[in-house]
Design a binder for these strands. Structure first.
Lengths: 345, 345
DNA sequence: CATCCTTATCGAAGCGCTTCGCGGAAGCGC
DNA sequence: GCGCTTCCGCGAAGCGCTTCGATAAGGATG
């Protein structure tokens, strides 16, 4: 407990300079003669000096803390969240920032505003941003900057980092088409998300329709709640309605688990009878799949990193980097293979 | 940006009292006359006053921040971590504390000490504590209190919150025994953890051996790395060596996924031929299982909450609550059922 | 009515740092 | 050798709050 720590005052005294000189050697905001700097640094070393982040924050009005606001609808976000958090936390640490967690569902911007007004953080990372997200206004009206993980309808010149769903879907379809698949099913996210115009679901649907149409392929689409059982039902229904399908593209992390169960129940082997490709799946999830899954890996950690970097740019008064759609990278494993001719059963 | 906020000084002025009186009405550390208190509170409301956490921290030497140190070995921790974090973050918020993330693998106590010495947090929650964890010393030598999620060999009078593995295993075995199973396999965590004497693995093994022995049952144990493929291999090996087993107890979140694959490959149905029970599994993981899984739910969120509460007690100078082993609750779903007589194949 | 408590409030001294204005000492050209 | 610019370093004023000793105003007491 009562560990006493050296202050900048102590360092100044020991080095025989003034307090402000110590500060300037630390911040570099004014030149310090090499000799002086050396003395100061030695004094700091001898005293094991550690600058107090709290005092610094008070004096400079910068807390060096970033907040991560994430929605708390229980499950499902788990793995995705994790990867993004991991990237964000690493990037923050490298930049000497701390990362605090603000669990705020998108339904309660009031709480977010409350937190933001405390000014305990310099900026906020908003996860799972929806097209018209009230949280953005909540954060900005409190005078904090924010970076969007995802994208709102009109991000303006804010920092945003989204997934390139178009590219991912296109790549998935291309991968399958190149193997001779011509009747491809698509399991999207929940119907509610589509109805609400939620970006990822809508963009993926467009992309899928475009990718199949352009190639003259047949696409069968369905939506599924984000649970294994919903995925199972959706897939069973698809198989019943379109027994001739030879591939399934799934952009729904949890439904994925139900998809394989449904295929198995229907007596279809993977990838013998049906190929399965996951889209925007986190590496963590893919590893839990029963076969090594062919998937388009979500840029999770990178998304987190970029959001942090962008936010820091803004905080430092530099222009915000342009928003980016990060591509997913195709990981070919064992759930995809050449299409086999299949008689409708 | 430049949003100006009211300070306590402003409030004092408006209420016609001194700065310190405002402070005392806020902290309650000295009595304030009801009438005065009312005036102050009204002034605060009118000015939309928000106390600055930073200034408060500097003056009071309490940051009102808790740090969560978690190991960063990529995967696997995901779901478990999440639940614990969720509990911790909620408990912290309720107590008006912030929760920051410190990603520090247990191999680098130096980094942890560094962070602790910054005194940017009042206390540290240590996740995945090992029997002889150097991080404890790192945190305490910096003068911070810590709470252990898990337990070290000698927790002393520190706060610790672990899972009652004995109870969980016992409950799993009891559940199976009551259904007539007499030859039960156990898939533990990695051999390396057993060799290292890592608490959970070792305790679970003892418990399993005890639970089966006490009932005169036959137990087949094996260890598996924390991946689906390792689980698959381990299970295949078990089935080959002991074709007569009718149940598998799995205390290994990721191996679980491989277990079902191996059973399927061996032509065993679940729960017809073989029952599967997960132990200390998070709800999130259980939902990803292909069948509704019978499991002993890890007390994840509660673990996080308790650790926070305990830590806060200590920070407030009260005696630390005694360490606890939290029980897992049996969730009977569809992967367990009565034992069927089975001819060794 | 002088005395001694109580009780509510005030003023001031920090907490450990950043930042701004100032000024002494060199260094420069002419 | 004079003014002028540069370069460094100093002192002091905060940042917004907590906390401690002191004080004024009543009340109770003898």
């Amino acid at each position: 407990m009562g560990v006493t720590v050296a202050t900048m005052q102590d360092v100044a005294q020991r080095a025989g300079v003034s307090l402000s000189t110590v500060s300037y050697t630390l911040t570099g905001k004014r030149p310090v003669a090499p000799a002086t700097r050396a003395r100061v640094e030695q004094a700091m070393a001898e005293l094991e000096f550690r600058r107090s982040p709290v005092a610094r924050a008070l004096a400079s009005r910068r807390t060096h803390v970033l907040a991560l606001a994430y929605p708390v609808f229980g499950v499902s976000l788990g793995a995705t969240l994790n990867e993004i958090v991991r990237g964000a936390v690493e990037a923050a640490r490298e930049a000497q920032y701390e990362l605090v967690l603000w669990p705020v569902s998108s339904g309660e911007p009031g709480l977010l505003r409350e937190l933001a007004e405390q000014r305990t953080a310099d900026g906020v990372l908003l996860m799972e941003v929806s097209l018209d997200d009230p949280r953005i206004e909540a954060v900005e009206s409190a005078g904090l900057a924010c970076a969007l993980i995802g994208r709102s309808a009109d991000p303006g010149d804010r920092v945003w980092v989204d997934i390139d769903f178009e590219q991912a879907i296109e790549a998935a379809v291309e991968h399958l088409a190149s193997q001779g698949h011509s009747r491809i099913a698509f399991v999207n996210r929940a119907q509610a998300e589509l109805d609400a115009g939620y970006g990822p679901a809508v963009r993926a649907q467009w992309a899928f329709d475009a990718a199949t149409a352009r190639r003259g392929l047949v696409g069968y689409s369905t939506a599924s709640d984000v649970t294994p059982s919903a995925g199972r039902r959706a897939t069973s229904a698809l198989l019943a309605a379109h027994p001739d399908l030879t591939a399934v593209v799934v952009m729904n992390e949890l439904a994925l688990f139900g998809v394989s169960a449904a295929l198995r129940e229907a007596g279809r082997t993977v990838p013998g009878d049906v190929s399965v490709v996951g889209v925007a799946i986190s590496g963590e999830i893919s590893e839990m799949y029963d076969h090594p899954l062919t998937y388009l890996a979500a840029p999770g950690p990178d998304q987190g990193r970029r959001a942090v970097h962008g936010l820091l740019e803004v905080l430092d008064g530099r222009p915000a980097p342009a928003g980016v759609n990060l591509p997913c990278t195709l990981q070919v494993r064992e759930t995809s293979g050449p299409a086999t001719r299949l008689d409708p059963r």
